[in-house]
Design a protein around this nucleic acid. Structure first.
Length: 488
RNA sequence: GGUCCCUUCGUCUAUCGGUUAGGACAUCAGAUUUUCAAUCUGGGGAGAGGGGUUCGACUCCCCUAGGGACUACCA
């Protein structure tokens, strides 16, 4: 099998042929390669983000590959969930996704090439035998080697099941020059003869990644540092295959707030969960980029800035923990400056998710109130609570505390205020604020003498912003009607 | 067990041999005040421990401790 034959197996749009010099080939090609066994989790999202930022920064390509060689565990649902997650995050790949399983023939060919070069061999060990060998190797302080490594297979073995193992060097060391972790050295004796082709002929991960990354023209492999050890074994495969190695960058994993590996008990893991909780994708991009990477004192930045500033060399080596407080703070920032219509859509969606569907007039009121209220929550869900007084059905039922504010004195004062409100022609938050101030002055009292009561009438005791804004958020008719409800 | 990686305020981080070790989130106090927030001002808060190298170490080296990853016919 020659390289040219192999090239025909896979030719993405922008890579004409990796074996031939390509003047138009991008200097940087990254990829995100999830295995479709679940949703896109937050750590994977950050890995994807770093790959995306790096590719954008260098004007390169960001590719997607679905590592579905494990037929047992891979599901269509997971593929869809991962694509959906990436889509929501706004991380668009520059080419159609590659499905690893579809390239099994090419993987098989690569393994055959290694066998032909004596860099791989048939191993007829049973699972039990392999376990025993592993035990022994472990006791001897070395990695697994199969007894079939240097054994010619007789004709009597021809019908027996076998796997194909990589024939790793026993001496010397393998160096991984990692862009994040630095120079990491492994003794080859510690690197086992891993399985390349399973009994059923299916390729394994370590083989498939090498072949695919090579064929896809990947120049920078940016992934979680749980793969750092694999990088050494993959390096050996690259060399055996005569492939040029990509640059490696193993980024630290994300831990939960308590410092342990992120797991279900830490709460939201899937990016979809974050969407449901009311976080914005730009929040996640900003927060995740800032986790393990920094650019001076910059905390909040745009995608453009992140792209301009991002470099893999500035990524930290230690794991970092998720901090929901900070995430909330950043989300509040983006919620404030987001388009009000978009935030209203999200609030409406969250409302619908809990079974609340608004009548058209009330939805319209919510929409017009949004600009006044969108700065009052860290998440869309909090905003839903802040909108409650706007969409409340009248006549409002006052809670105990609110009801107490309605004394004869305040009711009398509020009816004088009502006269003013009825005739004002400027129903905007600043104008209403000014009107209230003028009224307080004229009555020669502080806000305390009528503010709480007006608030009670307007909100029934639900949280709401400053009275001027609350009146504006409710709009003229609703405000005056709510006042009439309680003042008769 | 073995191999490898990591370690600055509670958290995310700046520092790339010489700084009163800076910023952000969180926290505390004060201001504001019509609820809840928000906002403003100010405060407390860190180089895991021990050895070196050096005129000088958070920064370089070694050891210890702690955390993590890998050690599959999973990826």
């Amino acid at each position: 099998m020659g390289p040219c034959a192999a090239a025909s197996v896979f030719t993405p749009a922008f890579v004409s042929n990796p074996w031939i010099s390509m003047p138009d080939r991008p200097a940087v090609v990254t990829r995100f390669a999830p295995s479709p066994t679940g949703y896109l989790h937050i750590g994977g999202a950050r890995t994807a983000l770093f790959n995306w930022l790096f590719a954008r920064h260098y004007d390169g390509k960001f590719l997607l590959r679905v590592e579905d060689t494990d037929r047992e565990r891979s599901t269509e649902t997971a593929v869809a969930a991962i694509f959906e997650g990436l889509d929501w995050l706004g991380l668009k790949a520059d080419a159609e996704p590659v499905f690893q399983f579809a390239r099994a023939d090419r993987h098989h060919d690569a393994v055959m090439a290694l066998v032909a070069k004596s860099r791989a061999y048939r191993c007829y060990m049973t699972a039990e035998e392999a376990d025993a060998q592993r035990e022994q190797a472990r006791a001897e302080g070395r990695a697994l080697r199969s007894p079939w490594r240097d054994q010619a297979t007789g004709p009597d073995m021809a019908q027996q099941p076998f796997v194909i193992r990589f024939k790793g060097p026993v001496d010397g060391e393998t160096v991984v020059d990692d862009l994040v972790q630095g120079r990491v050295t492994f003794h080859n004796r510690d690197l086992d003869d891993l399985v390349l082709l399973r009994t059923d002929g299916a390729p394994t991960y370590n083989l498939a990644v090498v072949v695919d990354d090579h064929d896809m023209g990947v120049t920078h492999v940016i992934r979680g540092d749980d793969h750092l050890n694999n990088a050494a074994r993959q390096s050996l495969i690259y060399e055996a295959l005569d492939f040029t190695k990509p640059a490696f960058a193993h980024i630290p994993l994300i831990h939960g707030p308590d410092g342990s590996k992120l797991s279900k008990r830490h709460g939201a893991q899937a990016v979809g969960d974050y969407a449901e909780l009311g976080y914005l994708p730009e929040t996640l991009r900003n927060y995740l980029a800032r986790l393990g990477w920094s650019h001076g004192d910059d905390e909040i930045f745009s995608d453009e800035e992140a792209i301009a500033w991002f470099d893999i060399a500035d990524v930290n080596r230690g794991a970092s923990r998720l901090d929901w407080d900070k995430l909330g703070h950043i989300n509040a920032h983006y919620l404030k400056s987001a388009d009000a219509g978009r935030v209203a859509d999200l609030v409406l969606k969250a409302l619908a998710a809990r079974g609340t569907v608004l009548d058209a007039p009330i939805e319209a009121r919510l929409r017009q109130a949004m600009p006044l209220l969108q700065d009052r929550g860290k998440t869309v869900l909090e905003l839903v609570d802040q909108m409650a007084f706007v969409i409340a059905q009248r006549p409002l039922v006052l809670d105990e505390k609110a009801a107490k504010t309605l004394t004869d004195e305040t009711v009398a004062r509020l009816s004088r205020l009502r006269d003013k409100l009825r005739v004002t022609d400027d129903w905007t938050a600043p104008a209403l604020e000014a009107l209230l101030k003028g009224f307080a002055q004229k009555e020669a009292v502080g806000f305390g003498k009528f503010g709480p009561a007006l608030r009670a009438i307007l909100t029934g005791g639900l949280p709401a912003p400053d009275l001027g804004k609350a009146l504006a958020a409710l709009n003229r008719d609703e405000s005056l009607t709510r006042i009439d409800d309680k003042l008769l």
